[in-house]
Design a protein around this nucleic acid. Structure first.
Length: 219
DNA sequence: GACCAGGCACATC
DNA sequence: GATGTGCATGGT
């Protein structure tokens, strides 16, 4: 098999089907979710987003105006709530002070400009920036996360001390730059990761078992 | 009770 | 430049 990366996509799609990501109703909700889900279970993020919705503050203007204390209380279920309060405020301040509070103005930026601008915001790292790029602005960038790394490393497709850019390069160079494909593939990595590729993996019925695995000791 | 989650910035060596 | 640490809730 020539393209193992694409083979992985096919195996995962056959097993799990379409994932219907990102689970959010608006561009802004996706951006907020991208920050809240940092190192955090999506179930907890949903509670926080529901709190924001119930309080009627899931908009750039409302989050711009709300006090840090109130915001922290609303997003508490997502964990790291003090850190994430600052990160959300940083993101919203950028949108307001530099782009007049309009996401449409951000949408006019080129891929390179948008990613650079997002990465300047304290609290927005590469994965969060790429999640926003792909899922909120429909740009064909691959979102790498811990599961992506784990799966590719365990199947010997990349060195175990690779960095984010190397993983991203492997994926983007192995695939056509297709927003829909990147959307599904990242979501499928998360799905297979949650089920089978934890730090201590349980690979018994994993659909990727047909791909050779590296030998690891997991203690 | 231990483990872990759809990271990131910062301190220290 | 590499490695370590704090941040925090909630499900399994």
């Amino acid at each position: 098999m020539e393209n193992k990366v694409y083979q992985i996509y096919q195996l995962l799609f056959e097993s799990f089907g379409e994932q219907y990501w990102w689970p959010g109703e608006s561009r802004f909700e996706i951006m907020v979710g991208a920050v809240l889900t940092q190192n955090t279970n999506w179930q907890n993020v949903e509670k926080a987003i529901n709190n924001l919705k119930k309080a009627g503050v899931l908009s750039p203007e409302a989050i711009y105006k709300i006090s840090p204390e109130q915001l922290a209380e609303l997003i508490r279920p997502a964990g790291y709530f003090n850190v994430k309060t600052k990160r959300l405020k940083n993101l919203i301040n950028c949108i307001f002070l530099d782009y007049g509070g309009s996401l449409g103005n951000l949408a006019n930026l080129s891929d390179y400009e948008l990613r650079s601008r997002l990465l300047e915001i304290k609290g927005i790292g590469m994965e969060t920036a790429d999640s926003i790029m792909l899922y909120a602005f429909e740009r064909a960038v691959f979102v790498v996360d811990t599961y992506t790394a784990r799966v590719l490393i365990r199947h010997n497709l990349i060195d175990e001390d690779c960095d984010y850019d190397q993983l991203k390069e492997l994926l983007e160079s192995s695939l056509a730059p297709d927003v829909k494909l990147f959307n599904e593939f990242h979501a499928l990595f998360v799905e297979v990761g949650k089920r089978f590729c934890r730090p201590k993996p349980k690979c018994d019925s994993c659909p990727l078992n047909v791909i050779p695995k590296a030998d690891f000791d997991y203690d």
